[in-house]
Simulated assay, not measured.
Amino acid sequence: MDSIITLFADPAVWAALITLIVMEVVLGIDNLVFISILSNKLPEKDRQRTRRLGIGLALIMRLALLSLIGFIVALTAPVFDLGLVGPVGEHGEPMFETSFSWRDLILIAGGLFLVWKATKEIHHSVDPAPTHDVLDAKNAVINNAGAAIVQIILLDLVFSVDSILTAVGMTDHVPVMMIAVIFAVLVMLLASDPLAHFIEKNPTVVMLALGFLLMIGTVLIADGFGVHVPKGYIYAAMAFSALVEGLNMLARSARKTSADKAKLH
């Protein structure tokens, strides 16, 4: 107890905690968007339970990985090398490399899954013809909750590994990591229902969210190959796209209000 009090008496620890909480919340929102899109494909009675189960699993995975810090850090050690290295970039590092660690392989697999899932969902949104996909809203039945949970678990694992490696890179103190992770998951839990309802009521937001998932999947694959895209660029692009979509929603709402007033007169 005394060691924890001493730890949090250091201003640098508080600065690291606040920064890490912000980063973990951002990573958690990516995870939450995927959970919301999947849960909205299920019957109404299963949606909230599936979302909360997915978020609960995300917390369990993150805390379990935190208890295995030594193992997680070892995930960054190279497993095999194909011997290919790209030209040196402006920062003195190769533009890509083919020395793969377990972290790289997990990110590539998760990115491919995200790209596949987002592309499939975009196809379903664009093509109105019914399909036999188990998660197609036209065919959704109660048994689909299991299929959704399996996919949520797979992406929870990818986002959890990324989240914990981010935490390890920010601080050496496990209590700080645990507080940041728990706080981020609590934010996910509080935001899950409002975000899912918002996505459900605004179909164009679904397409935007799927576009985000497609971009995130591509970035994960690139990161796995050693191509490090600055996260600031990614989130700036997402924020700008969300702002444009927000303006479109305001414009549609204004036109609807104007049309309703015209009908009354």
Score class of each variant (00 low, 15 high):
A74G: 07
A74I: 00
A74C: 10
T76P: 00
A77V: 06
P78A: 10
P78T: 13
V79H: 04
V79K: 12
G83F: 10
L84G: 00
L84M: 14
V85I: 12
G86T: 12
G86V: 05
P87W: 07
G89W: 09
G89Q: 12
H91N: 15
H91S: 15
G92W: 13
E93Y: 11
F96G: 13
E97G: 12
E97Q: 09
E97R: 03
E97V: 12
F100T: 08
F100P: 00
F100C: 01
S101W: 08
W102H: 05
W102I: 08
W102Q: 01
W102V: 10
D104F: 06
D104W: 07
D104E: 05
D104Y: 03
L105N: 06
I106N: 07
L107D: 07
I108S: 06
A109H: 06
G111Y: 01
G111H: 02
L112V: 10
L112I: 10
L112K: 00
F113L: 14
F113K: 01
L114E: 08
L114F: 13
L114S: 11
L114Q: 01
V115N: 06
V115Y: 00
V115A: 04
K117Q: 13
K117H: 05
A118F: 02
A118L: 02
T119A: 11
T119I: 10
K120P: 00
K120W: 05
K120G: 05
K120C: 04
E121Y: 12
E121L: 07
E121W: 04
H123G: 05
H123N: 11
H123L: 10
H123S: 06
H123F: 01
H124G: 10
H124P: 03
D127M: 15
P130Y: 14
T131H: 08
T131S: 14
T131Y: 11
H132R: 15
D133V: 05
V134Y: 13
V134P: 09
L135N: 13
L135C: 02
A137R: 15
K138L: 10
N139Q: 14
N139W: 02
V141H: 15
I142Q: 13
I142K: 15
N143D: 11
G146R: 13
A148V: 14
I149Q: 06
I149G: 03
I149S: 09
I149P: 03
V150D: 06
Q151Y: 07
Q151T: 06
Q151E: 05
I153S: 09
I153D: 03
L154C: 09
L154F: 12
L155C: 04
D156H: 07
D156P: 05
L157S: 01
V158Q: 04
V158Y: 00
S160N: 11
S160C: 11
D162F: 15
D162L: 14
S163Q: 01
I164V: 15
I164F: 08
L165P: 03
T166D: 05
T166F: 14
T166K: 15
A167C: 00
V168N: 12
V168C: 08
G169H: 07
G169N: 11
M170F: 02
T171K: 09
V174Y: 05
